[in-house]
Amino acid sequence: MTNREFLKGVTVGALLTGALTVGGFTGWMKASASDSVVSDKSTKAKLEYLEKIIDANYLEEKDEEALAEGLYTGLLYGLGDPYSRYYTEEEYDRENKENEGSYSGIGVVITENSEGGILVTECYEGGPAELAGMEAGDVISAVDGEDITEKTTAQVSQMIKNDEDGNVVLTIHRTDVEEPLEITVSVTDVELPTIYSDMLEDHVGYLRISEFAMVTPKQFEEQFGGLQEMGMEKLVIDLRYNPGGVLSSVCGVLEQILPEGMIVYMEDKYGNRQEHTCEGKTPLEIPLSVLVNEESASAAEVFAGAVQDYGIGTIVGTTTYGKGIVQTIIPLSDGSAVKLTTAKYYTPNGNDIHEVGIKPDVEVKLDTSLLNKENISREDDNQLQAALKALGE
């Protein structure tokens, strides 16, 4: 494993998300106006006055639709909850695609290049870009002959996704290749890899789960099955830097290894309880270690908490992030949506880990000398070595 693959950082605190459909705005109109912020006379008067100030003084033309979207955004922002927010239709569509773990594209990770163009930092294994011959380190300078050296990654992504004939021609500059390359790549549905697997020495399987997307349970089943076919006798699951994801996804993975019983349960402010249980058809019967750190959050903590409560594995690393609250996405009839913190979740034994986290059974901090290394061997990874040792104890 190279380029610090297991330490690949992502945004901390991804949301443990459920979906709740609300049929438009009519339900809100039945609510009492007396306790409504937006119907308060002083609030309405101030908003009208602010708009008059804009009309009288703002240099450019105002966009009334954008101003309205700003009001909705501000209403949710006023909760002071970093996990609650308003989505425009476009943002909600993007959020859904991210949760699904698949999208229309060519299977690359890109970033803006300091010298112009777009740098390809990763090609997904088996994806259209890799199959067409693209490599990490390639720099894209044109899409279908159109220069993109001054465009953002978002703009280039849209150009590629919106290609009408299903194939895009990319002009590529590659180190040690004198002339630019023109590579034709198919634009298709790409499944994001959320699980990396390998067989270590002594028949120890290794699974790193980067996030819990809708595609993760299927990928886990495939990768886990492949390791079993290779003769796996012990297993390490690496959840370090896993920011969480979708609740149904982590439950779908845990259903493949837990005995019969509770996976996780949630309670809202009214005391209503929702449970997720496991039938226990395929309980894990080999030694297990689960690696976590302070950036293992949300759904990753659901996973670690269930493993710890059932005693089917040893949790190794440092105390997790401590995000034990649930966000529900509520779609609206105009295509927009709101995401609200609606409940707390609890481990099977009833542990509330919000702002507490999951404490490892074996506490091991990552050797700080490794943080600045580009290439870290498994032998140098002291947390992994501790997890391997725990398998034999």
Rank of each mutant, 00 (worst) to 15 (best):
Q219W: 00
A300W: 01
K97C: 05
Y86A: 05
D367I: 07
L170R: 04
G27M: 03
T341A: 14
E100K: 14
S36K: 11
T43P: 03
P180K: 01
E130G: 04
E355K: 11
P331F: 06
S36T: 09
E150Y: 10
T277L: 07
Y321T: 02
M159T: 10
K151G: 06
I106F: 09
G205D: 04
G133F: 02
V292F: 05
G226Y: 00
Q383W: 04
G13F: 04
R85P: 00
G392N: 15
S141V: 15
N293Q: 09
E229C: 07
L50W: 05
K234S: 14
T88W: 03
E275I: 07
A33E: 15
T43N: 14
A142E: 02
A132T: 00
D81I: 05
A33Q: 14
A300E: 01
S157P: 09
F220S: 06
A33C: 09
N96C: 12
L254D: 15
E222N: 08
V307T: 13
N167F: 13
G145T: 08
V120A: 11
G80P: 02
V10K: 13
G70V: 04
V12G: 08
D165V: 11
L227N: 00
S333D: 06
D147E: 14
V250Q: 10
M266Q: 15
S333W: 04
V326P: 03
E211F: 10
L119D: 12
L239N: 03
G317K: 02
E355V: 09
V362P: 03
D163Q: 14
G350Y: 06
L76M: 13
L181C: 13
K44M: 10
K161M: 11
F220T: 04
S32D: 15
E374Y: 10
N242C: 11
E393R: 15
S336H: 03
Y77W: 05
T342S: 05
Y77D: 10
V290A: 12
G226I: 09
P193V: 00
Y321V: 00
T341W: 11
P243G: 09
E64S: 12
K344C: 13
L47W: 07
E355A: 04
F220N: 03
I376H: 03
T2Y: 13
V168G: 01
